[in-house]
Design a protein around this nucleic acid. Structure first.
Length: 505
RNA sequence: GGGCCUCUAGCUCAACUGGCAGAGCAGCGGACUUUUAAUCCGUGGGUUGUGGGUUCGAGCCCCACGGGGCCCA
């Protein structure tokens, strides 16, 4: 990538460039012309800003040390008092260190070119003694300095937060300007790391399964479709890793998980992103209860890893505790209590529809089956109001085609959904392992698909064949990582994703 | 998909009832050897998201379109 000297991107005439861009471009050109490198390949750093700060936690005002260091960072403040300049450098973690450049120490030529060349936003290298200023600010008293990288565009004002749009379109600016944006990255990384290590400690193996699939499945969702030229076939981007992870369990990987990206061709709003990160884990000889415990432990460990406590404080200042045991609600019982009348798996469709009408719910015509309507009633009357972590158990069989029937109760399956702060954070099953029943469930789904339900699954012969070779009983769970971050921070999904999809301008 | 809010200088935002488009920071020129968003003097910078319309006159009112945010489905 080479940008021709004296011209900016997509601008033929310099007049159309912002003034500050032209000024900085001219500085770059002048440096090159005078034999100074605006983008050196390396600068001789000896310490990070954090290391310098850590080595001198409480230097007396005016103190000098014999420590000579080379540091670099982004220029976030510039103050020029004539024969003495103060620069504040910031590193990626937001740690700051002052550099002082005096006429006496660096000489006139060097100080003049510093004033002429260096702007806010540039990356700067400085070499010199570690001292404390008269006001007690830890500083590097420079004997030499060098530009590490010239910025052509000005830094946004650091005293105000970026606008909502800049935050999502230019996250790098958000990260520079807003500590909370950097904190989100730290929290997310801590949570991911915690989940992985907790699972590894319990003997789970992490695997990677196909993202490009010839047949999508494992969830009720509409996929992205793409095309492979070499084979001239359409491929689907996965909506869930479930069917491949279960194949792995058939093959003897008895504790397996995957933590990676899922794609769903649905709306984008403050709780939905077309691509998002999901954890799925399967445990042979476990069931929906053992996997519920695992899920609770993962969430609690994640909170501890990120915040050092299970008491979670959200962006709006409210807090709640994810520690301890979590309540379990029976879906039909809780819904019946909230509605003041009894519904059950035996309640006929027309009665359920009457309840839905009474509640003002509009049911998608493709979803007019008893189980879906009952679930809609649950979400409206109960789910939306569940704030503390709660397992909702025993869903209708109709829309849970991969879950086994409850061992003793007719009409429901051994499934839970985990609700936090009014949304669904995760789900867990006693997985269906009978290939004959699985085939019947797929066929029922295919019928729905034929009736126009884009979310319905298809008959997956390859998966059925794997099952037919003997799938051990197992518990399985899935949890949206972005949603976990939302639950732990109280932020919208686009704040939890570093670079969310944004429509082109 | 529906509703509400929003889009103005590089950034963050003002602009009364429709009447000369402004501020802070950033920039440019100058002064200053201990500043902390330094201070002081001087100064440049605008296709008000896009396209139409109403009007003597539109950042402001109307219509359409686009982007972002929030709420609902």
């Amino acid at each position: 990538m080479t940008i021709p000297v004296s011209s900016g991107p997509e601008h033929d005439d310099e007049q159309s460039l912002p003034e500050q861009y032209r000024v900085r471009l001219a500085k770059r050109d002048r440096m090159l012309a005078e034999g100074r490198e605006p983008y050196p390949v390396a600068v001789p750093i000896t310490h990070t800003i954090g290391q310098v700060r850590a080595a001198h936690p409480d230097l007396e005002p005016g103190a000098e040390t014999d420590d000579v260091v080379g540091v670099a960072g982004r220029v976030v403040h510039l103050r020029n008092t004539g024969k003495l300049c103060f620069v504040t450098l910031a590193d990626g973690a937001g740690e700051r260190l002052q550099v002082m450049l005096s006429l006496a120490e660096v000489g006139e030529e060097s100080l003049d070119s510093f004033k002429a060349d260096v702007d806010l936003g540039d990356h700067l290298f400085a070499h010199g003694k570690v001292i404390s200023s008269r006001r007690g600010e830890l500083s590097v008293f420079a004997d030499t300095w060098q530009l590490a990288a010239k910025a052509l565009r000005p830094l946004p004002t650091l005293h105000k937060e970026s606008s909502e749009e800049t935050r999502v379109r230019q996250r790098y600016l958000d990260l520079i300007a807003r500590p909370a944006a950097r904190e989100m990255v730290r929290v997310r990384s801590a949570v991911v790391r915690s989940i992985r290590s907790e699972l590894h400690e319990r003997g789970f193996l992490e695997v990677e399964t196909p993202i490009l699939q010839t047949q999508h499945g494992g969830a009720a969702a509409r996929p992205f479709v793409t095309h492979m030229n070499a084979y001239d076939i359409d491929l689907y981007m996965r909506i869930a890793p479930e069917l491949f992870l279960k194949r792995a369990v058939v093959g003897g990987i008895e504790r397996v998980f995957e933590l990676n990206r899922i794609f769903r061709n649905e709306g984008a709003d403050s709780t939905h992103s077309p691509e998002f990160a999901m954890l799925e884990a399967y445990q042979a000889y476990g069931d929906y209860m053992s996997i519920a415990n695992l899920t609770r432990e993962l969430v609690q460990a994640a909170a501890l890893a990120a915040f050092g406590t299970t008491e979670v404080t959200l962006a709006d200042g409210t807090s709640y505790d994810v520690g301890g045991e979590w309540p379990q609600l029976d879906m039909y019982t809780a819904t019946s209590e909230a509605m003041g009348m009894t519904i059950s798996p035996e309640t006929p469709l027309d009665q359920l529809m009457a309840h839905a009408d009474a509640a003002g719910l509009q049911i998608n015509p493709a979803h007019v089956i008893p189980g879906k309507v009952a679930e809609e009633l649950f979400e409206h009357h109960v789910g939306d109001h569940l704030w503390e972590p709660t397992f909702v158990m025993h869903y209708p069989v109709d829309n849970s085609p991969l879950v086994r029937a409850h061992r003793s109760r007719p009409g429901v399956v051994e499934k839970w959904d985990l609700y936090v702060r009014g949304f669904e954070l995760g789900t867990g099953y006693s997985e269906l392992v009978d290939p004959v029943v699985q085939r019947e469930r797929f066929e029922a789904q295919a019928l729905l698909a034929a009736k126009g339900d884009h979310d319905a699954m298809r008959v997956d012969e390859d998966f059925l064949e794997a099952m037919e070779h003997g799938m051990p009983p197992m518990g399985g769970m899935g949890m949206g990582l972005d949603r976990l971050l939302m639950a732990l921070t109280g932020l919208g999904i686009r704040e939890t994703i570093l670079f969310p999809l944004v429509k082109p301008r």
